[in-house]
Design a protein around this nucleic acid. Structure first.
Length: 427
RNA sequence: GUGGAUGUAGCUCAGUUGGUUAGAGCACUAGAUUGUGGAUCUAGGGGUCGGGGGUUCGAGUCCCCUCAUCCACCCCA
């Protein structure tokens, strides 16, 4: 009976683990560089927690189960609800603003596809209790900061930024009732992914008035924030939303990443809970799924039973990122840092094996990484083993130990070797 | 849930109009070489040809079913 890995999961053999660590370590380093501190929660939560934000239907997309106490639980498909729960629990004790990051392992019961798996890692950063759009700009900046640190340039990636608040205000202004907005968002979100005619067709199904449909199409094609006043007469709410978005861009310019950023009315995000700036970072060619996405969600904490505290954040999965980095030649199996060994201890004579063990243990005791062959076979074999483990130095225990209590220490890189008194290692 | 493609060794793949005991390269193990690593050469281990059924004297090859994987759709927190 041969059992294989579960659909949509990956095995991380040492080479793949090195790649994963490369990505995850980069995320953590970028987070810390940008002033975020790490948190984590349990990998399963009450099923109900995911229904608050995403509705009843979400259940079929989750791995859920009942525990022996009859609790309905689910493996986490995202960490934002956990974050909301944790922050709410200690809201009065936490120093503000809260800038937290996490790299949770998540599971979703979806059909696997390119860049989309059933188990994956996702870098999350969130800033809580900062009303100023500076927090939104910081989230975008931090995402770009990481991508830039990998060697991706403005020719490789683009941050597409828009505003839910602006979109809602404009739609209301052209006569869309507020209650219709939530059904419209997923359609608008699709616009960049489908042909223009299909987009119009979908809109016409929802909206009877063809003038309104035409206006929406025009709006969605707007290339710059400055063009919006030409299309609609701005009311106070629209003006405020527009100013706010302009401020996001102003901050990003001050931080020197404006050439990565672009206004894009087509960035809507399917979910209802976004309240302000929304953004996605895509590969410049637009061939892959979004590398990351996020935005402001000022109502989430109160939806989870907490006080009304503002929040903004982003999530970046490892799957699309890895595909992009490999395509760009910024990640190969050879380019990833490999695990190395400080000392490999080779033993030439079975009689001396006890000494070899002693030296190895002493090296470990001193804080070095050290390893040895379990069999005393040909030196050639042992050198090969040392090489395979990326040993920096190889200690050879042979006749010199018997004759003058000395060991051969070979530098594996230069090939040079010297005789050193055994006591140097054994003390 | 829908559609398409693909399943032969750990990996990448060959395998003729159906014909005897299923092959190569890489990887792995050992040896050439009992005191010196990445190379070379030699040898070895490793396969119920995804699984089941059918056609046939005979199936890796043809037919049916099934399972799995990948890709696209749906969805995408």
């Amino acid at each position: 009976m041969k059992i294989q890995a579960v659909k949509g999961t990956r095995d991380f053999y040492p080479p793949q683990m090195a790649v994963r660590n490369f990505i995850v370590d980069g995320w953590k380093t970028a987070s810390i560089r940008n002033g975020f501190v790490e948190y984590d929660g349990p990998i399963f939560e009450h099923l109900q927690m995911y229904q608050i934000k995403s509705g009843e239907e979400i259940v079929e997309q989750l791995f859920n189960f009942e525990d022996r106490g009859g609790r309905h639980l689910a493996i986490r498909p995202e960490i934002t609800p956990t974050l909301a729960r944790m922050v709410n629990q200690q809201i009065n004790a936490l120093p503000r603003p809260i800038k937290w990051f996490s790299v949770p392992r998540l599971c979703r019961a979806e059909r696997p596809q390119k860049g989309r798996l059933r188990e994956f890692f996702q870098w999350n950063i969130d800033i809580i209790d900062v009303e100023d759009v500076l927090a939104d700009a910081e989230v975008v900046y931090c995402s770009l900061d990481y991508l830039r640190s990998l060697g991706l340039t403005r020719n490789d990636v683009v941050a597409k930024i828009s505003s839910r608040r602006l979109l809602a205000a404009v739609l209301k202004n052209i006569g869309i009732p507020e209650a219709r907005l939530d059904t419209l968002y997923p359609i608008l979100d699709k616009k960049p992914k489908i042909p223009a005619e299909a987009f119009v067709e979908m809109l016409e199904k929802e909206i009877d008035d063809s003038d309104t449909v035409g206006m929406i199409v025009k709006l969605m094609d707007v290339q710059s924030v400055d063009d919006i006043p030409d299309l609609v007469e701005l009311n106070d709410e629209e003006q405020a939303a527009l100013d706010e978005l302009a401020q996001v861009f102003a901050y990003l310019k001050q931080m020197g990443v404006e050439e990565y950023c672009r206004f894009d009315m087509g960035i809507v995000r399917g979910l209802a809970y976004y309240t302000g700036m929304v953004f996605e970072i895509h590969d410049a060619a637009g061939e892959l799924r979004a590398i990351c996405g996020g935005g402001r969600y000022d109502n989430l904490l109160s939806d989870f039973g907490g006080p009304k505290v503002t929040a903004t954040g982003m999530g970046m999965g490892d799957a699309v990122l890895e595909i992009l980095l490999r395509e760009k030649g910024l990640l190969t199996d050879e380019s990833v840092p490999v695990q190395t060994l400080d000392y490999f201890v080779a033993c030439l004579d079975a009689d001396l094996f006890g000494k070899a063990l002693k030296v190895t243990a002493a090296l470990r005791q001193q804080g070095h990484s050290a390893n040895l062959n379990y069999k005393t076979n040909a030196l050639k074999k042992q050198m090969k083993a040392a090489d395979a483990m990326n040993a920096a130095k190889c200690i050879i225990i042979g006749g010199e130990l018997k004759e003058s209590n000395q060991l051969v220490v070979k530098d594996m890189k230069t090939g040079e070797q010297e005789l050193i008194d055994a006591m140097t290692f054994l003390k």
